[in-house]
Structure formats: C-alpha cells, structure tokens
Simulated scan of single mutants.
Amino acid sequence: MSAPGDDDPPLEGRPIGRRAFFGLVGAGLTALAWGGSALRGVSSASEALPAFVRSAVPIGDGWRIYAVNEPYPTFRPATWRLRIDGLVRHPQSLDHVALRALPRAEQTPDFHCVTGWSVPGVHWAGVRFADLLAAAQPLPSARALAFVSAETPYVDYLTLEQAASPDAMLAYDMDRAPLTREHGAPARLVMPRMYGYKGVKWVQRIVVLDRANAGYWEQRGYDRDAWVGDSNGL
C-alpha cells in the first residue's frame, strides 16, 4: 500500500537546511539569553525576513508555535471526522464525541523542541493507540502509522512499536482544557520521547501501513527517529 505523500508532487517553497535552521535558531536563543534591547533588536530584524525564516526563529516566552502552511486549520465539531484506514479490517470514521468516549489516558511529560527549547510538565489527555486502533483491527502486515494533518502537506510516521510506547497518545486536551487551535485542535500526536516535530497537529486521518516513510521534516533533513537527546546531531 502506498503511504500518504508517495504520489505527491515535488515539494515547493524554500526548505531550510539543518545548519541554516540551527543557525537561525541559535540567533534567537542567544537573544533570549541577552534579553532586553537585544531581544527587541532580533524581533525587529526578524520582521524583514521571509515568513519561512521568521517561523523558524524562536522569539518570546513559553511555547513557540510553528506552522508549515498558515493559517492554522479550523476545527468544526459538526463536520470533523477522524479517519482510520489502510491495512485494517474495519475502517473507522470517528466524530469528536466518539473519540472522547474511548478509554481516556493522562500524563504530564516535558515537551522538547529540536530547536533547543522545552516546556516542562505539560498535562495531556487523550487516547492510547492500542485503544484507538482496537475497532479497526490492523492486519498482520501492518507495521506503521501515518498521521495526516489538516495542515497540508504535513504528514509524519511512527512504527507500530513506537506507537506502543507507554506515553504515546492521540491527545485532545492540554493542561486540563481542550486543545486550542494553535496547539492542534481537536487532536494531535504526542510522543514525549521524540522531539516536537514528530507531534503532528490537527490530525484528521491515521493510515495503517506496512512501513514508515519520511515525514514532512525528515524530507527536509531531520532524523526519522527523533529521539530526544539521541538524534539530529544532539
């Protein structure tokens, strides 16, 4: 079975090479360390940069919200469905109520971005993948999951073994409230042992596959297995 993206046209735009990306991020982090006028100077200078560069430079406190194709997708509860298909016996289409009715899991891990910043103690609630896939019944040939975002062309992959990690989930709540639009409402992948670029937001489809492919950021130079502290040269 072909995976999402196999037949897509060539990627467009100006991808940022890994060295360039980390150079830009380094400038942003240095400004954060300096504070005061230096931070304001970097913020002001960043306004003259192309949008794809500005989105890569972490400016400000707390979360840095990155997007690959603005504006953020809009969640409409009346029409939203999560499709689960591919190498399964029973394809599923879950509305938001049905998703939240599945066995609930909660956890409070730290969130790590490959660009060098972290958010400690993020409380997530959602569904473990064993419970999410139970009704679909993956076939014996199943080996991986593709997470397809409403923010095209954002797709990323986990092997089934990775998705079985005890802290992997499809989250619908963050810090004891429903996900906000900028954080991926209504559902996002959470994989705390991997860097945040694997955490696909605005998930609208999960495809069960026979292999994991290179996702959006991996096609732009990042490691496929984004283990925190043990990938991307870190």
Rank of each mutant, 00 (worst) to 15 (best):
P192V: 04
A33P: 00
A105Y: 13
P192L: 10
C113M: 06
A130M: 05
W80L: 05
T152Q: 11
M1Y: 12
A101D: 14
L209V: 03
L24D: 01
R19M: 10
Y216W: 09
T30Q: 09
N232K: 01
A212E: 04
R104L: 15
N232V: 01
V114H: 06
P103F: 10
D175A: 13
M191A: 12
S37V: 11
L11G: 11
G26L: 04
I65A: 13
R193A: 14
P103A: 14
H123P: 08
D173H: 14
A125F: 09
S118G: 02
R100W: 06
V127H: 11
V114L: 11
V57L: 00
T152F: 08
L132P: 09
G62S: 02
A150H: 02
G199I: 03
Y157A: 09
R19Q: 13
M1G: 15
Q137H: 05
V148Q: 07
D8Q: 01
V97T: 12
D95V: 06
T115L: 12
T180N: 07
D210F: 11
G184M: 07
V25W: 00
A33I: 00
G26F: 03
W124Y: 13
R143L: 04
S118N: 12
P15W: 02
D6A: 12
A48Q: 05
I16N: 11
R143Y: 01
Y66E: 13
D167I: 05
A212F: 06
A3R: 06
A3M: 07
S231N: 05
H123L: 14
V203N: 14
N213G: 10
Q162V: 05
E70L: 14
P138V: 04
D167L: 10
A78C: 01
R89Y: 01
G126P: 10
H183E: 14
R104T: 15
R83S: 08
Y195V: 09
P15R: 04
D167R: 13
H112I: 01
L133Q: 08
A185E: 11
C113W: 06
A51W: 00
A67G: 15
W202P: 02
A48I: 01
G121M: 11
V190H: 03
V88N: 02
M1A: 15
E12L: 08
E151G: 00
L179Q: 05
D167S: 14
V25M: 02
G116N: 09
V114I: 14
A142K: 02
A45D: 01
V203I: 15
Q92K: 04
D230N: 07
R211M: 09
V207W: 02
E161G: 03
A98V: 04
Q137F: 01
G199E: 15
G62D: 08
L132D: 03
A98C: 03
D95N: 13
Y195W: 12
A168T: 15
G17D: 14
V155T: 09
I65L: 15
A56G: 07
H96P: 00
Y154D: 08
A56C: 06
P166H: 13
W34M: 12
E218N: 02
A125S: 14
D6H: 08
F21M: 13
L87M: 12
V190D: 11
Y216D: 09
D85F: 00
L234G: 08
G26T: 06
V122N: 02
M1S: 15
K198I: 12
Y66A: 07
